[in-house]
Write a protein that binds this DNA or RNA. Sequence first.
DNA 1: CAGATAAAGTAACCATTGGTTATTTAAAAA
DNA 2: TTTTTAAATAACCAATGGTTACTTTATCTG
Lengths: 209, 209
Amino acid sequence: MPRKKQVRSEQTKQDILNAAGRLFAAKGYDAVTMREVAKEAGCSHTAIYIYFGDKEALLHELSIPALTELQLQIEEKVSGKLEPEEALRRISLDFIRFCLIHRNMHHIFFEARSIRVDEAEPELEINRVRNGMFRLLMQAVQQCLNLPEGSGRLLSATRIYFYLLHGIVGTYQLSEESAEDLMDRLLLTFREAIEVLLLGFRAQHAPDK
Amino acid sequence: MPRKKQVRSEQTKQDILNAAGRLFAAKGYDAVTMREVAKEAGCSHTAIYIYFGDKEALLHELSIPALTELQLQIEEKVSGKLEPEEALRRISLDFIRFCLIHRNMHHIFFEARSIRVDEAEPELEINRVRNGMFRLLMQAVQQCLNLPEGSGRLLSATRIYFYLLHGIVGTYQLSEESAEDLMDRLLLTFREAIEVLLLGFRAQHAPDK
DNA sequence: CAGATAAAGTAACCATTGGTTATTTAAAAA
DNA sequence: TTTTTAAATAACCAATGGTTACTTTATCTG
C-alpha cells in the first residue's frame, strides 16, 4: 500500500480546503477564482478539479465540517436540561452567529440551488446535515409550544420561526461589518426579536380571553 | 427639434425594457445575457449599452416603476382609514406578494450592492424609493404600537418586522413555484406569521402581569 | 433636393472565468 | 529498475460582460 503518496495527496487536498476557506471568507465565494485558490494553496488549478470536480463542490465540501459543528451545538441544547424556551433562545443565537460568521456560505444553507439533483448520490452529505438541522429546530419549537408532533400547526410555527431567523441573517448577509461587530451592535435586537416571537406564540396558544 | 428620431429612440428604449422585463422574469437576472435581451428587443446589444450603460443599470431602471407602484399601494394603506393593525396586515401581504412576483429583482431590494456608491448622483432614484418605503413601514408599525417616533424601540420593532418580511420572501426567492401558487399555498402561514408578530408586540408592550 | 446629423447595426475585439485535456515531470512503490 | 501515480504545465474552449471603430440608414434642416 502506498503511504507517502497518500499523505501527500491528503495534504494537497487540505491545502486547497484551507486556502479556499480563507479566500471565500475574505472575499466571498463569487469574487474568488479557482486560479486564486490554487495559487494560495500552492498547487495548480487543475489539481483542484481533480479533487473537487468544480467550484461549487469545493464550497460544498468546505461547508460540511462547519455545519456539522453547528448541528452538534444545537443538538446539545435540544436534548439538554434547559427549559424549552431558554433552549430555543440559545439555539437561535447559535444559528444566527453561525450564519453571520459563515456568510460566504449563505447560499449553501438557504438556496435551493445547492441541492444538486444531478448528483449521483441523492443523499448528499450536506442535505443530510441540513435536514437534520431542520428537524432539530422543529423539535425545539415543539418542546416550547407543546404542539403535537407532525401537526400542521407545528409545521407552520416552525416555518414562522425559520422565517425570522432567515430574515435576520439575510439582512446582514452582505454587510461589511464583521460577525462580531454585528453581534455586538444587534444582539439586543436579535434577542428581542426572538422574545417577541415567543410571546406571540404563547399568546396565540393561550388566547387572552 | 427632431420628432421621429426622438420617438424611435424612445421606442427602442422601451423595447429593451420590455424584453429585459420578460426575460429576467422568466429566466432570472443572472441567466439572461445582454445579447439575448438585444435579440428579444429586436436591436443590437450595443444599443443597450448606449441606453443603459451596463447590465445592472438596466435592471435598475427596470425596477423603478414597479417599486413606485408598490410604494403607492402602501402609501394608500398607511394614510387610509383602516385601523392600524389591519393596515399593517395588508401592507405586509402587499409587500410579500410584490416580492414574490418580482423575485428576479430580489437583490435590488435587499442587497446592499445595489446601492451604487460610484454613481455620479448619490441620490439615485431607486434609493429614494427604497428609503421612502422603509419610512412607510416604520410609520405603519408606529401607528400599531403607539411608540414615540424616532425612539429606539420603534426602530427595533420595525427591524424585527422587517426581518420577518425579509425572511418570508427570501425563503421562496429561488422557488420554482409561481407567485400565485405560493400565495395560494402559504397565505395562511403568512397571515399567521404576521399575526404572531402582532400578538408578540402587543404582549411586549402590555406585559401580562 | 442635398448635405448634415444622429440612431442603430455590424463586426471585431478584449479580459475574465469556469472548466477541460493532453503531455510531461518527479517522486514513490513494486 | 521499472512501473505507478500525484501533480505541474500549458494550451485550449466557450460563455460572458463590456468596448470600440466603422458603416448604414432614416430623419432633419438648409
